[in-house]
């Protein structure tokens, strides 16, 4: 049983590697056979060579961006979770704040970047705030939705047993909203990286966003693609991490999957 599981896992890993390898070969062939000039699409072998050769120059900016995104994500999650609980707990909060929240939710937060840059400063502060804003909203909305979609029968049953509003909230509503929260956290993680990089494109001298845009304008595609690959790796790792946390904490929400 364990062995079969392991074999299954191994074959999946090989499949994954194979797909990426195939994609790399296709890229290489496309660039070489059609003789696409390097300033448009450099062959992947050149990009990887550049990446390995000058990772010491590339990595610091990746870490700066990661730091900004994570700080924003952390703050956005804490605020989002607290507000989500408040909205779920109190009808008064919900009725008065939720429409406003939806209105704010539907503005692309990315559009506020120039304003944030003007109001605060250059560099880290606007990037963190943008990351905070992009991660805050999915968390609030999903946490609230999680509480709003409670099974009425469950609530009624707990009421019959004499549960107070507070106990209902802590014992039923919060656990029920957790899968929604963690689903939002995964979206928020990706969103935080988008927010941070975008803010760097408009108002920063460091970070992947700034470097990528500069590289594109200067037709330095080796640098451009290296940064895109690195930030892609970072975001995949972040996503995996959040998925693992999700599976560990709200494993019970995935029970039904075993039957598929």
């Amino acid at each position: 049983m364990v062995l079969m599981h392991l074999a299954n896992r191994l074959s999946r890993i090989f499949l994954t590697l194979g797909i990426f390898f195939l994609l790399g070969i296709l890229w290489e062939i496309a660039a070489k056979v059609f003789k696409i000039p390097t300033p448009i699409l450099p062959p992947i072998s050149d990009v990887l060579k550049y990446l390995i050769h000058s990772y010491k120059i590339l990595l610091p900016d990746v870490f700066i961006t990661l730091y900004r995104a994570l700080l924003g994500l952390g703050l956005g999650t804490v605020f989002g979770l607290l507000l989500g609980f408040a909205l779920g707990y109190s009808n008064y909060f919900y009725n008065s704040l939720y429409p406003l929240l939806i209105a704010l939710y539907s503005i692309p937060k990315q559009a506020l970047v120039p304003l944030i840059v003007l109001w605060t400063s250059f560099g880290t502060v606007p990037a963190v705030i943008t990351a905070l804003l992009t991660s805050f909203f999915p968390v609030v909305v999903n946490t609230t939705t999680g509480i709003m979609t409670l099974d009425p029968d469950l609530v009624a049953l707990a009421r019959i047993y004499g549960a107070t509003k507070w106990r209902l909230f802590v014992k039923i509503a919060i656990p029920h909203s957790m899968p929604y929260f963690f689903a939002a956290l995964k979206v928020a993680g990706v969103g935080a990286l988008v927010g941070a990089t975008l803010s760097e494109m408009i108002g920063a001298q460091t970070g992947v966003g700034h470097k990528v845009l500069m590289a594109s304008v200067k037709f330095q595609t080796l640098e451009l693609f290296s940064y895109v690959i690195l930030i892609g790796l970072v975001s995949v790792l972040l996503y995996w991490l959040l998925t693992a946390v999700d599976r560990h904490i709200v494993w019970w929400a995935y029970r039904w999957r075993e039957r598929l």
């Binding site: 990426f20 990706v190 304008v217 451009l224 975001s235």
Partner: peptide, 24 residues
């Protein structure tokens, strides 16, 4: 099964850094 990892990678990649490539 085969495309899942690729799709996850594409999903995770911050789309803002892809804009400069499209621009180019």
């Amino acid at each position: 099964e085969a495309l899942q990892p690729l799709l996850t990678a594409l999903y995770c990649l911050p789309k803002s850094v892809v804009v400069p490539i499209f621009l180019l």
